[in-house]
Structure formats: structure tokens, C-alpha cells
């Protein structure tokens, strides 16, 4: 763009009067637009399919000749109400949502606090074991999840944590994963040391420096962390699949939907309500992405380049 603007300014009217170039620019833009529209149609297809299907009635679902668009005159918004009110689905989605929200509320506070606490020691304090501890933490990042998940299942069974919310909350008091700590550490390196040095001369201890200087300056990385935490626990079906073995366990919303998907047939009358559950689950990550678009892609950037 800049280059074009400069060129335009340099050649002035000569360029503007050059009809051929303008026509070429126009066709190029049109081609680009058409290309993007085509790709958008393909990529958005499942997304729209999901939204449309969630608004279909029972007869439309059971029609052996499936439709993409719902009956516009008879949109079944009621499916979203049924999702939470009708217990006959067998999956109490309302209660499941409550469990999910409890887990998220806990983690959205616990992970940012504990992860910044730990990252502070790596970014702003000088101590002997620092590099070794950091290296050990980074090594655990490449450890496949299954190596710890299965023994944790046995351990949780022994200490009575199966079918409770503890496996999804308590471990996050300890930083919530190497990736978050690593990202916050990288971010803290960018906070100038002058700030904390001045506080040190004024007699502030490390706790004061962490709480009143470093933590308030971490806001923008914390937004990224909070959104990631929300998304990962909002969509977590695998944890409950492992650690919630009995039928009266506090299911999460994602797990209720998982079971409904695994057990139900695509053509059953509950398909539309289930799809409404899917739309409901996709709604919040979508809103979060659109609102915090730039922050989220920036986070991908920092972890991409420095990782």
C-alpha cells in the first residue's frame, strides 16, 4: 500500500490518467474479492450448517432429504430453550453449564494469579536455581499428556477425587501449565527494570514489587491468558471423560455434549436441540475472538516467534 501511495504521488496525474492500470487494479481487486468469497463459502459452510440446523424443527430434521437452510417462516428458537429446560434429553445441560462455569470462574482467577507469581521469579528475580527450574518447566511442555493423565486417574481414584471438580481446579493453583508461565515471563521481560529498581530503593520487598508494580503492568498478556483458559475449559471434554466415571458425576457442558454426540443418532429428534447446544458452545469463543481479535493474534505471534 505504502509503495503504491508513493508511486502515485511521484507519477501524479500520469498514473491517475493511466486507465489501463486502474482497470487492472480494479480487476485484481475484484478477483481477490471473488476468491475470498469462494473460500469463505467453503470454510464457513460447517459453521452456518450448524447454526441453521439448530433452528430446524423435528420434521425438518427427520426429512430423509436433508436441507441446508431451515424453514425461514418457522425458525425453532425454542430449541435453545428446550436445551436447558427439557430433562428428557437425558443430559441435564443446565446443571452441566453450572459446573463448567464454576470450573472456569475458579481457573480464570487462579491461573493468572499463580502463573504471574511464578513467572515473576523467572523474569525479575536473580537466584541460583532459576535457570535449572526454568529448563525443567520447559521440558515438561514436550511431555505427552497421556503420560500423566492415566496415572493421575489412578491417583485421583485413590484419594477420592474422581467424579468431583477437584481435578479441574486444584492443579491449577500451581501455575496452570508451562505455556502460560512462559508467555507471561516473555512479557515481563518487556517491563522496564527501572520501575522495580525505583521501588526497591524506596524499600519495597519482592512481594510489594510483584503485587503493585509488575502485576498491574501485565494486563494485556493476562487478557490473552484468561481467554485461553476460558476456551480450554469451556471446550474440555477429555478431562471429564477420564475423571468422571459415574453417572451422577458433576458433568461439564462439553462432556454432556460429547456423550450426547457419541450415544445419539444423527437423525434422532434431539439432533436439532443437540446442535443448539453446539451453537451455544461456539457462541462464546466466537464473541471472544471477534472482540479481542488483535490481542489473540498478537499472542499467537509472540509465542510463535520467541517459542
Amino acid at each position: 500500500m505504502d509503495f503504491k501511495a508513493i508511486r502515485e504521488r511521484l507519477t501524479g496525474e500520469a498514473y491517475a490518467s493511466n486507465r489501463k492500470a486502474r482497470a487492472w487494479d480494479f480487476t485484481k481487486t475484484t478477483a481477490l474479492f471473488v476468491g475470498m468469497c469462494l473460500v469463505a463459502v467453503v470454510l464457513m459452510f460447517p459453521y452456518l450448517f450448524m447454526v441453521f440446523k439448530s433452528l430446524m424443527s423435528e420434521t425438518e430434521i427427520l426429512d430423509p432429504n436433508p436441507h441446508f437452510f431451515p424453514d425461514w417462516t418457522n425458525l425453532q428458537w425454542n430449541n435453545f430453550v428446550l436445551l436447558f429446560t427439557d430433562a428428557s434429553s437425558g443430559y441435564s445441560y443446565g446443571l452441566a453449564l453450572l459446573h463448567t462455569l464454576i470450573i472456569i470462574a475458579f481457573n480464570v482467577i487462579a491461573i493468572p494469579l499463580s502463573a504471574t507469581f511464578i513467572a515473576f521469579s523467572f523474569a525479575k528475580l536473580k537466584w541460583k536455581g532459576r535457570n535449572i527450574c526454568f529448563a525443567i518447566m520447559m521440558l515438561t511442555m514436550t511431555l505427552p499428556g497421556v503420560v500423566t493423565q492415566i496415572p493421575l486417574y489412578v491417583i485421583y481414584a485413590k484419594i477420592g477425587w474422581l467424579n468431583t471438580l477437584y481435578p479441574f481446579t486444584i492443579p491449577n493453583l500451581f501455575g496452570g501449565g508451562a505455556l502460560y508461565i512462559f508467555l507471561i515471563r516473555q512479557y515481563m521481560f518487556g517491563i522496564p527494570n527501572e520501575l522495580s529498581d525505583a521501588a526497591k530503593i524506596d524499600g519495597c520487598g519482592p512481594f510489594r514489587i510483584y503485587w503493585s508494580i509488575i502485576l498491574p503492568n501485565c494486563k494485556s498478556i493476562l487478557i490473552y491468558i484468561i481467554i485461553s483458559v476460558f476456551n480450554s475449559y469451556w471446550g474440555d471434554y477429555y478431562g471429564p471423560l477420564l475423571y468422571m466415571t459415574s453417572t451422577d458425576a458433576p458433568y461439564t457442558f462439553a462432556y454432556a455434549l460429547f456423550r450426547s454426540t457419541v450415544e445419539g443418532l444423527a437423525s434422532s429428534q434431539w439432533a436439532a436441540v443437540r446442535m443448539a447446544g453446539g451453537v451455544f458452545m461456539t457462541l462464546f469463543p466466537t464473541i471472544l475472538f471477534i472482540v479481542f481479535q488483535e490481542k489473540l493474534t498478537d499472542g499467537a505471534l509472540t509465542s510463535g516467534i520467541k517459542g
Partner: peptide
């Protein structure tokens, strides 16, 4: 500072021990 470093890092070490190294 050395002591503070270990204190600030201790949640990580406890967490790694309980939820990573013991299961490993």
C-alpha cells in the same frame, strides 16, 4: 532475593512434583 526467588517459584515446583513427576 535468592529466598524470594525460591518462594515465588515454589508453587511451580510443588505443582510439578505432585501433578507431573509423581504421576510420571
Amino acid at each position: 532475593e535468592e529466598i524470594a526467588g525460591w518462594i515465588f517459584c515454589s508453587p511451580l515446583l510443588i505443582g510439578l512434583l505432585l501433578f507431573t513427576f509423581v504421576p510420571m
